[in-house]
């Protein structure tokens, strides 16, 4: 079997260089500051202190989490009914509907976000429509609304598909049994369908919250230059300011934030599905 093990060696070397080394560099740069001489590095926590002591950066962090949370919430509220309808449709219809929901996601995100930028523009079609309806002088582009709309638009298909996946696995017999035992539609939904779809919601949250909190082109295209999220700060540190250490520290903070939120969601999932199990 030696020759088979040999087949893995090139990739092991490749992944050490291309995957692990860059991650180690982020860790390294986050904790150093450049000394006086060119090749001198000094270990420090300054980059993290700078982030948390400056209210500007802390506000950016809070805003990013807030926007990502609202986006996730809207994706669940708006996406759940869609997933539910698709899951309850006839197999052929639901296959077509799944295709219809996934099709836009294959088209470049930048392209679709740019389209929203045109639609929401001051002289764009959305404002024109609102004016026709008698709502005058609204500003849509470069608002928080536009950013959230763009994020919900881009990420809701992931939520719908995840919820749909867990709903489509649901055994119809549970619903029949509930109906036989006298539960009405609402009771059946709240006590059977919803708890059994929690795993789908949880993986949906992961797929929405993570890209939402780290996104930087949606706030830039739809929120304008003033609307800064954590991704924009990282972009600036690397591409404009050239401060790798501070940029690395911020992305570490973001990564930790994401890990914590994943942990909380997983725990919630375990708790809810666990409780559902006790009821049986």
């Amino acid at each position: 079997m030696k020759s088979f093990k040999l087949m893995t060696i090139p990739y092991i070397i490749w992944s050490i260089i291309m995957i692990i080394l860059p991650m180690v560099m982020i860790l390294f740069y986050a904790f150093i500051t450049k000394g006086n001489s060119v090749r001198q590095f000094i270990f420090t926590f300054d980059n993290f202190l700078k982030f948390f002591s400056d209210p500007v950066f802390f506000d950016v962090l809070k805003r990013s989490v807030y926007i990502a949370l609202i986006t996730t919430l809207f994706c669940i509220i708006l996406g759940y009914p869609v997933a539910y309808i698709i899951a309850r449709a006839k197999p052929k219809t639901s296959a077509i509907l799944v295709l219809l929901v996934t099709l836009p996601t294959w088209i470049n995100m930048l392209v679709r976000t740019y389209a929203w930028r045109s639609i929401l523009q001051e002289n764009g079609i959305a404002v024109a429509l609102l004016t026709l309806m008698g709502i005058k002088n609204v500003k849509l582009i470069e608002t928080e609304f536009a950013v959230i709309l763009g994020m919900v638009y881009n990420f809701i298909p992931f939520m719908i598909l995840q919820i749909y996946n867990s709903l489509s696995k649901l055994d119809e017999n549970y619903l029949t049994a509930a109906a036989d035992l006298g539960a009405n539609r609402v009771q059946t939904f709240l006590r059977i369908t919803l708890p059994l779809s929690v795993p789908g919601i949880v993986s949906g949250i992961t797929l929405v919250f993570l890209p939402a909190v780290s996104s930087f082109f949606i706030p830039k295209l739809l929120g304008g230059g003033q609307f800064v999220m954590i991704g924009n700060v990282i972009e600036n540190q690397f591409l404009t300011a050239g401060n790798w250490s501070f940029g690395s520290a911020i992305s570490l903070i973001m990564a930790i934030l994401i890990i914590i939120s994943m942990y909380i969601t997983r725990r919630l999932d375990a708790k809810i599905t666990g409780d559902g199990g006790d009821d049986k």
């Binding site: 982020i26 740069y29 780290s214 930087f216 990282i234 690395s248 973001m254 990564a255 994401i258």
Partner: peptide
């Protein structure tokens, strides 16, 4: 997140 992978590669 893509941006983390991206900055790692950029520095590398």
């Amino acid at each position: 997140p893509d941006i983390v992978t991206a900055i790692g590669l950029l520095m590398f």
